[in-house]
Structures are given as C-alpha cells and as structure tokens.
C-alpha cells in the first residue's frame, strides 16, 4: 500500500459528504501507462482544481470521471471510481445515465451548429426532463441565467450558437451542461481559449455554480486554481503528487515537486 500512503488524500476542513472518489485509478493507452494509480475524493459542493505540467495526466484523469475515455479505442482504465458509492465502471451502470449525472465542459467552446435555444434544450430533450414548450422555455431561461448569459442573448435565442463570441460560446456550453441538472460538472481547461475578461467572467460563474454542483476543473493557470478552488490536486508524470486545501498547497506544499511547479521552476 505504498503508493496509497504517498497519495494520501488529505481530509479537507469542509465537512461535506464525499460525492466521487477515485481508488488506485490507472489508465493505459495501448501499452503505455498514463496514470499510475490515483486516489482522490471529491466532496459535495466544492471546487477541486487539478494542476500540473502538460502531459501529467490531469485531463486524462478528468475524462475517466465520466468515462469520456470510452470513445478512445485503445484506452483502458483500472481501479475504481465511485459516484455516490457506486462504481461507475461497473458494467451494470449505464454510461449515458452517468454522463447525465456527471456533465462536462471542454477546453474549446463547442456549441452545436444549432440555435442558442436548441443548444440548451439538447440535453433536457434527450433525457426527457421536459415535454412542454413552456417547460423548455423555463429550462432555457434558468440555465442561461445561471451561466450569466441570459441578458446578452435573451433577444436572439434562435440565432446560431456558433455566432457568439468565444467567451459567450463557453458560457453557452456551461448553460448546456447545467440544463441537464447534473450532480457533478467536469471542466477541462474551460478558459484556455478565452481572453482575460471572458476568463474572469467564467471564474465568477464557477464560484456561483458551486452552490448547486460539485465541480472538478483542470487548469493550466495556477492563479485560476487559487482563485476558484477550495482544494487543489497536483499531478506530475502520471502521479497524483499531493492534494489538499488550495491555500495550503500554494503556501506550504509538502512535496518538493509541487514546490518546484508552483514557484515556476518547471512546468
């Protein structure tokens, strides 16, 4: 149990229940191992930031949390990931249902080539969350409001989503994810393609969303991690080096690799 003690997840000060937990998760691409056994817990209504140099496996780990890696043929996952105590890699668990509960926002804004309205109701329609027009209208309004986009687009809901600016597109994608009423939202470097103003907008948004959702966010940007998250996990070369309260990680890292990264010696 050596690796486990090394990766010892630190119980945070928060007293929220555990929403998701990873136990000795290993990911292989063909014969190559990309993750060497990750243990981490994700608490309800917290924002967990994952940082680390490129290729450290943080995005790979994020994608295992709602089984997006299934779409890659050569990818294989070992270990256990529990959502409310249920193993999400259990063959009896349905991947479609899982992704409805664990939504995802991607690095590059990827609105569908449809209207803003259609983009938002895409998920609810699939999962049968509403049937009547007024129900859909309500979902669109609340979702866009929560994504802070409502005021900007309420007069042009039926124009294509691809016509929005980059930051607006990303907020549309967040609204799209929120509309499904997931329990967890995964965000894969959601601001990397955006300018600073749009980034600030989204960071604010993430903080607000924390009240209703559990959020895991991968970011390249350490300041961002410091600003939006309660806890931070540092990945390096496929290992989860350490995880703990964000403040502590940034002020008093226990591992020298973390120290090296956050002080900018490499990364």
């Amino acid at each position: 149990m050596d690796s486990m003690t090394l990766n010892k997840p630190v119980q945070a000060a928060v007293t929220q229940p555990v929403k998701m937990s990873a136990r000795d998760v290993k990911v292989f691409y063909g014969a190559k191992r990309a993750l060497h056994g990750v243990n981490v817990d994700l608490y309800q209504n917290e924002v967990l930031a994952m940082i680390g140099p490129s290729g450290c496996g943080k995005s790979t780990f994020l994608r295992t949390l709602n089984r997006m890696n299934d779409t890659i043929d050569i990818c294989r996952v070992e270990g256990k990931i529990l959502l409310d105590g249920q193993d999400i890699y259990d063959p009896r668990l349905d991947v479609v249902q899982l992704r409805a509960r664990v939504g995802m926002v991607f690095q590059k804004p990827n609105p569908f080539p449809k209207s803003i309205y259609e983009n938002v109701i895409y998920g609810p329609k699939l999962h049968g969350l509403a049937t009547r027009k007024d129900e859909f209208d309500a979902i669109v309004e609340t979702s866009l409001k929560r994504a802070g986009l409502w005021n900007e687009v309420k007069d042009r809901l039926h124009e294509p989503g691809t016509g929005l600016s980059g930051g607006q597109q990303q907020r549309l994608c967040i609204a799209r994810a929120v509309a499904v009423s997931p329990e967890v939202i995964l965000m894969d470097e959601p601001c990397s393609a955006l300018d600073p103003i749009a980034t600030a907008h989204i960071e604010e948004l993430i903080d607000e969303l924390r009240e209703s959702f559990t959020i895991a966010i991968v970011t390249h940007n350490m300041q961002q991690a410091a600003r939006v998250s309660q806890r931070t996990a540092f990945f390096h070369l496929g290992d989860l080096v350490e995880v703990g309260d964000t403040e502590e990680i940034f002020t008093n890292p226990r591992d020298e690799r973390t120290q090296g990264y956050i002080t900018g010696r490499y990364g």
Partner: peptide, 18 residues
C-alpha cells in the same frame, strides 16, 4: 465534422445515434 462536437454531445449523456 470535428470530434469536439461529438464529445460535447457525449458529455451531455447522448447515445451514439442521438
């Protein structure tokens, strides 16, 4: 058609045919 669009849809819990 870019893979990112497919990912976006799968990420919302759509099946392949959807």
């Amino acid at each position: 058609v870019p893979q990112s669009l497919r990912d976006g849809s799968y990420g919302l819990g759509a099946t392949k045919s959807e």
